Amino acid sequence: MRIISYKLTEERNQLAALTDNDQLYPLPFTSFLEFMNHVENRDQSYLTAVNEMIADSLPIEARLEELDLQLPVRSYEVWACGVTYLKSRDARNLEAKVTTNSYYDKVYDAKRPELFLKSTERRTVGPNDPVFIRSDSNWQIPEPELGLVLNKTGKIIGYVIGNDMSSRDIEGENPLYLPQAKVWKHSCSIGPAIRLAETVANPYDFDITCRIFRNDQLIFEGSANTSQLKRRYEELVSYLMKDNETFDGTVLLTGTCVIPPDEFTLQEGDQIEIEIPEIGVLSNPVRQLAAVKN
């Protein structure tokens, strides 16, 4: 069972349930946070709540691809984890031009994971919205990741696809530049749906595929599996929660293991697709931030 949000009118979004046989049922909420508040106050499971709401409903006649999909959850904050996959560690070392005993080697093996604030609600975009590339970077890539949708106590409510856009040259120049390498306008996308955690048999067996198109031609495709993740989700969440205030709908991105070749950088007009079959396809065009009017 997946939850989506789509534009019903210019002023109003509609939440809906998407079943595994691709039937869409409207839910009586305009946002996922409203839905969370409803379920949390009743101390019932999310899947039970959805099944009760759609039991006597008729499916929406429109197909998913006909809907104007919106952010499935408008998170106050999106956090991210770094160097949780071996391939990510190696890529960070290459950026920083180090070979042994680097900070990235140390954090990969350390007890404490790397966590950082990736985005806020106003910086995060949804399906089909443009992601921006920085004007002061010459080496930029998408980072396809599995995201955990949390309630305020740190419980994993669902799973979502995330794109943790990254400026490799900025971070490689100095690890203290990480915030600038990771956070700017439209530097994070989330979507297209939230897969309820109760409906996932093994969250360490998600296939993640990233495709990048340029002039309608496929120029990169890479895949990996969340079984390659070094740390457990609960471990990452526990460090996010330490002495920290979190909110219903917080998203925690769990790190990337799909990285384009070292000579690759995104360009204006590229199209990024990130697919996790159990969740869907998150698609975003690429725009040059300097060319976009605010």
Rank of each mutant, 00 (worst) to 15 (best):
P277Y: 03
L71E: 00
L71W: 05
N163A: 07
T199A: 06
K7Y: 13
K97F: 02
T124D: 10
M165Y: 04
D105W: 04
I161E: 07
P59K: 07
A96M: 02
G222W: 01
S166L: 05
D22S: 09
V200F: 03
N151D: 14
C210H: 04
T120V: 15
I276T: 10
E235N: 15
V237R: 06
P277F: 07
S238M: 08
C188Y: 11
L64K: 08
P142V: 07
E275L: 10
P260E: 01
S5K: 15
I4M: 09
A201N: 11
V73A: 09
L229Y: 03
D164P: 11
D136Y: 15
Q140Y: 09
E11M: 14
R232M: 12
G191A: 11
Q44C: 13
D109T: 12
D207E: 09
I170Y: 01
M165F: 01
S167Q: 04
T199G: 04
L146G: 10
P285S: 11
P130A: 13
V258C: 00
D109Q: 15
Y177P: 01
I274Y: 11
Y104N: 01
L178A: 02
P192T: 06
S166A: 05
G154I: 06
Q217E: 08
V183E: 07
Q271R: 15
M53L: 13
L117Y: 14
T9M: 11
V149D: 04
A55W: 03
T246I: 13
G255R: 00
E10A: 12
N93D: 00
I272F: 14
L8W: 09
M53G: 04
V286R: 14
A17L: 02
Y239H: 15
P59I: 08
L86F: 03
E263F: 05
R89P: 01
V83I: 08
T209Q: 05
S31I: 06
S135D: 15
T226H: 08
L71Y: 07
T256H: 00
Q180Y: 13
I212A: 01
E34T: 00
A62L: 09
S5N: 11
K106W: 08
R214H: 09
S57T: 13
F29W: 03
Q180C: 03
E66K: 10
Q23A: 11
I219C: 05
Y6E: 10
Y108G: 00
K230T: 13
T250P: 03
S31C: 04
D248M: 04
G172R: 02
L64N: 07
D22R: 05
V292H: 14
